[in-house]
Amino acid sequence: MSLSLAIKTFFRTIRDKSFAADLSAWLERPAPVLPKPSPAPRRTAAIELLATLQREGRLVDFLQESIDGYSDAQIGAAVRDIHRDCSQALDRLFGLQSLRAEAEGESVELPATRDPGAWKLTGRVDSEASQGILRHHGWTLTRHELPAWTGSDDAAWIVAPAEVEIS
């Protein structure tokens, strides 16, 4: 098939000028864009955090479940547990603390140079302002202790394993 096609093409290219032009254009076309191969699965800190919140607080189950059909009381009963377990996990991993010790609504002194990562200014902002009212005290970590993954690369993207009971 390839050989007969090559011979046919050879003779037609010599005889037929417009065919030769088309063929030439076709041969010089840009290579088709292939989708980039996805990076090799790697266990990232983000996956580990998600897996921890699912494992200890069932957070992924909760967010993936449609809650339309349930009464507020049903949701409330489950959320109490999810809330407690997730916040315990966050506390253990990150030791979350208020960034500012002042109560919200109180006046706070602003430093001369303020890191936009630490201060979000709203209202009549100007660089001269030396104080303002604290509207949100902010949050900060006091530690960063994510669990260490010992599983295989194949399972790196898995947030929760399938559970099978053998009877």
Binding site: R58, E65, Y70, Q74, I75, A77, A78, R80, D81, I82
Partner: peptide
Amino acid sequence: HPVTILGRGSKVIGGSLS
């Protein structure tokens, strides 16, 4: 005090008992 057992499968609210 409510005693709640969350659903075992992925239906965490639907399967919960209280």
